[in-house]
């Protein structure tokens, strides 16, 4: 398209040298914009630290309260520990997801994003990666505490980290979509958990079962079905969110 205005052309036109492969450039441009959104979210959070501090405190409180509320002995720790871990992750993550699109709504910056010449899915992936990073940062702090409080072996850490990563991807994947859905509703703080938790039951259930299996030292074959279920739901949720996000954020 050549604008009819003679003297003014978008600055962007100069970015397309003839020598570069346009398809390759578009692909790089897509990831460049995804990273720009992630970087913007991290910069904004580092300025205020509002979301991360709330998530940290909340997750630590959950671990502490459950630790004292239940009579944790070696024989019942493995039964309760997986649930405690995922309650802490899910509820702290919910705080983060709730804030994720609020910062886009306050001054209409979501409209600013939607005005940019970028595929809507890039906005979704940018927000999704940001959410995963914020939740993962909280997990880096609570996992060692979880191991210590429940007197678990450090040998389980690599497998546990793998399950936590898979669970977090599924949780943030669908959570990012729902967070965008409720942004214009009045009761969004209440609506988000009500909508999100029933949908992510398969992710939480398989993550809890896998965590229990790891703590009990079960062989992979015994928990293979839960692992398959978790990976399958991660992929399904991501695909659905990828398809639906454009319709969710547009009028």
């Amino acid at each position: 398209m050549k604008p009819e205005t003679q003297n003014l052309k978008p600055e962007t036109q100069n970015l397309k040298p003839e020598t570069r492969n346009p398809k390759l450039e578009t692909r790089f441009g897509y990831f460049y914009k995804v990273l720009a959104i992630v970087s913007k979210d991290i910069t904004a959070e580092l300025r205020t630290k509002e979301m991360m501090s709330a998530m940290f405190v909340f997750s630590l409180l959950v671990i502490f309260i459950f630790n004292f509320a239940f009579d944790l002995r070696a024989e019942n720790a493995s039964t309760l520990a997986p649930g405690v871990l995922w309650v802490a992750i899910a509820f702290a993550g919910m705080l983060g997801l709730g804030r994720s699109f609020i910062i886009e709504r306050d001054r209409g910056s979501l409209e600013g994003l939607l005005l940019a010449p970028v595929d809507r899915s890039a906005i979704y992936f940018g927000k999704f990666i940001g959410n995963v990073l914020f939740i993962a940062t909280v997990e880096i702090v609570i996992l060692p505490l979880f191991i210590v409080f429940f007197n678990l072996s450090i040998v389980i850490i690599p497998a546990l980290v793998g399950v936590v990563i898979l669970g977090t991807i599924g949780f943030a994947g669908v959570g990012t979509l729902f967070s965008a859905m409720v942004i214009h509703t009045r009761a969004r703080d209440v609506l988000l958990p009500i909508l999100l938790f029933p949908v992510i039951v398969p992710v939480l259930l398989s993550a809890v079962r896998l965590t229990a299996g790891i703590i009990d030292g079960l062989p992979l074959a015994d928990v293979q079905n839960w692992l398959t279920l978790l990976i399958a739901f991660d992929l399904i949720f991501m695909a659905i969110a990828f398809i639906l996000f454009e319709h969710v954020v547009e009028e």
């Binding site: 978008p10 600055e11 962007t12 970015l15 441009g29 460049y32 914009k33 720009a36 970087s39 913007k40 910069t43 904004a44 300025r47 205020t48 910062i103 306050d106 001054r107 209409g108 910056s109 409209e111 600013g112 994003l113 005005l115 940019a116 010449p117 970028v118």
Partner: peptide
Amino acid sequence: TLLYDDLSAEQNLRFYAKMYD
């Protein structure tokens, strides 16, 4: 304003510059 309150003017504009190439 379509701006991010917690970012500086320069950070806001740099972000949008990336979005518009």
